[in-house]
Structure formats: structure tokens, C-alpha cells
């Protein structure tokens, strides 16, 4: 697996001007570019507080003492690196795709099944891009592949040089089938030791929204940040099939007789409701949600999300 098979140069070019910033405070173990809840040795002033016994006199603000004759200690905000956890849905529904594969597009287990550019491929491309971007800014990136029982494979968070290749190799070799337990996978990740993280969840989110709501609420409660990267094939978005045939689910849901021309309007309405529901859940938790068309390039869509997050972070910082 070559890097360029998952990370096209144009995607890198589109993401290069941006930095993936944590909207929430990150708890890293190393100095970095993200805000840390720990105030300590840093250069960015945070606030004043009254001097307490035991404080180092080095942090006394003598200028304030001169004006007010009171002892105040200056506090500084520590900046740390970002812990990023990329979760990729490897359920059977992610193997759906209608865009014919072209040479040089890499190959995953899903691609080999369908001979098409699947939602899993698109999710892998997103995960690769995000991982590359984070590693490039020396954040720590981990990967979790979500299967029926939660994480079926994972790569520990690391900012090592070969972490990106590890992630890509893991994505390419992992079988894609069954259902996805995103909630269970998040529980498994949270059970591991670590601080606040940024979760990038790439899935089609076609499962029950209640499970997703519970999982995201847990993340929100623990103070983590998250990005929901919804993957939908263009056929799923437009549903312009001209057939009256049985539809067979990819996750063993059985067959369903339907005339696509007849149910098209109702399907599109249901899809709109589902997308709105996922959007609302993410927004309620303060997370970002972005839907991808697998027939379009990853770069522009992902760039718009990162740019938006960067703008919000910068505004909060200066506000």
C-alpha cells in the first residue's frame, strides 16, 4: 500500500494551509499547539489570582503589587499536543459503492468485494488524510476500526514517524462485513487510559441513531471532541434507480420488494430525516458533522470542515 494511493497529492495540497485544531481543550502529554487544561510553564498568559502560601514568588506580578499593594500571581495556559482517535466503520453497509474503480485508487477489502469505490474506501481516504494532517502537526493519532463487537482492530495513538503507514496498512487489510457497534467501540476507546481526545468517526451512520446519540453524549460528558464524517454513495443520495426489483441488504437485513421509481420520493424524504437527525445529535453535543459524497474528492469537503474548526478556534482564542 503506497501512501499516495490513499492520499492524493491534490488532497494534500487542499489540506496543507490548514491545521486541525481541537475545538475543546486537549490533554496531551507533550507541548503542542492546542490549549491544555493545565496551567503551568507556558508563555501564554491566562489570568491573575491571589497569592497563596507556597506559591513561587517568580510568578508574582510586581506591577500589580505596585499599583494595588496586593500580591497576585500570574498564571499561564499550557499548550499541548492533540490526541486524535480515528474510528472507521467497517460494517457491511460501507461496502456499497457505485463509482467504478480506477487504477491507482488503492485497494481495500471492500474494494475487492465490489470492484467499486465504496464508502469504506472513502472513509479510509478521510482517515488517512486526517491522520497525515495530525501527524504533520505532531499530534498523536490512533485508529480504531469498528466492527460488530466494537473495535476489531486498532492502532495506538502515536506521533511516531511510521504511524501513518501503520494506520493505512491497517485500513487496507481489515475485512469489511457485518454490522458496526460504534457505541461499543467508543466505550472501548474511552476505557483505555488517556486524556481528552478528538474523535474522527467515519461511517455512513445508517444504524440506529439512539446508539449514536448515547455514544456521542458520553464523549461530550467526558469532554472529548468529535467529528462525524458521514459517508454516502451518490446513488444513496439521489436514488434514481429505474428498477422494480428486490433490494437486498448488505448487513443481512434480508430482501425487500420495492419499485425504486415509486418509493423514490419517500426514500429521499426518509434519508433527509435521517441526516437531519444525525446532524441534530452532533450539533446538540457540540460536534461537527459532515456528509461526504463518495463520488467527489475528499479534499475540498474535508478542507472546509477543518477551515471552519480553525476559524472557530481562532475566534474563541481571541474572544
Amino acid at each position: 500500500m503506497r501512501a499516495e494511493e490513499y492520499l492524493a497529492p491534490e488532497t494534500l495540497a487542499q489540506l496543507a494551509p490548514f491545521e486541525l485544531r481541537a475545538k475543546r481543550i486537549a490533554e496531551g502529554v507533550m507541548n503542542g499547539m492546542h490549549r491544555s487544561p493545565v496551567q503551568g510553564p507556558a508563555v501564554e498568559f491566562a489570568s491573575h489570582r491571589h497569592y497563596a502560601a507556597g506559591d513561587s514568588v517568580r510568578h508574582l506580578d510586581w506591577k500589580v503589587y505596585a499599583r494595588s499593594d496586593k500580591l497576585h500571581v500570574k498564571e499561564y495556559r499550557q499548550e499541548t499536543n492533540l490526541e486524535v482517535m480515528v474510528l472507521v466503520d467497517a460494517s457491511g453497509s460501507m461496502t456499497y459503492g457505485t463509482l467504478p474503480v480506477k487504477s491507482g485508487w488503492g485497494g481495500t477489502d471492500a474494494t475487492r468485494q465490489r470492484s467499486a469505490w465504496t464508502k469504506y474506501d472513502h472513509a479510509c481516504a478521510c482517515a488517512a488524510a486526517i491522520s497525515f494532517l495530525c501527524l504533520h502537526q505532531r499530534d498523536r493519532v490512533g485508529l480504531g476500526i469498528v466492527g460488530p463487537d466494537g473495535l476489531v482492530a486498532n492502532a495506538r495513538r502515536s506521533s511516531a514517524k511510521d504511524q501513518w503507514r501503520t494506520i493505512v496498512r491497517l485500513l487496507a487489510t481489515q475485512p469489511v462485513a457485518g454490522v458496526a457497534g460504534i457505541g461499543r467501540a467508543i466505550d472501548q476507546v474511552l476505557a483505555q487510559p488517556g486524556g481528552r481526545m478528538l474523535f474522527a468517526i467515519a461511517s455512513d451512520f445508517l444504524g440506529p441513531t439512539e446508539e449514536l446519540r448515547s455514544a456521542l453524549a458520553l464523549l461530550r460528558h467526558r469532554g472529548h471532541d468529535a467529528m462525524l464524517l458521514g459517508m454516502l454513495d451518490r446513488q444513496e443520495i439521489q436514488f434514481d434507480l429505474d428498477v422494480a426489483a428486490p433490494f437486498e441488504g448488505l448487513e443481512s437485513e434480508g430482501r425487500l420488494e420495492a419499485d425504486a421509481r415509486v418509493v423514490r420520493e419517500a426514500y429521499l424524504a426518509e434519508l433527509a430525516l435521517h441526516q437531519a437527525s444525525v446532524d441534530r445529535i452532533a450539533r446538540t453535543c457540540g460536534f461537527d458533522c459532515l456528509w461526504f459524497d463518495t463520488h467527489e474528492s475528499v479534499g475540498p469537503v474535508l478542507a472546509s470542515l477543518i477551515a471552519r474548526r480553525e476559524a472557530m478556534t481562532r475566534g474563541r482564542k481571541h474572544g
Binding site: 453497509s93 456499497y96 441488504g249 437485513e253
Partner: peptide, 9 residues
């Protein structure tokens, strides 16, 4: 026809 969004359908 293979289809992913069976619940929606």
C-alpha cells in the same frame, strides 16, 4: 439489487 440503506428503504 444490493443496497446499504435498507432501513431507510
Amino acid at each position: 439489487v444490493a443496497w446499504a440503506a435498507m432501513d431507510l428503504l
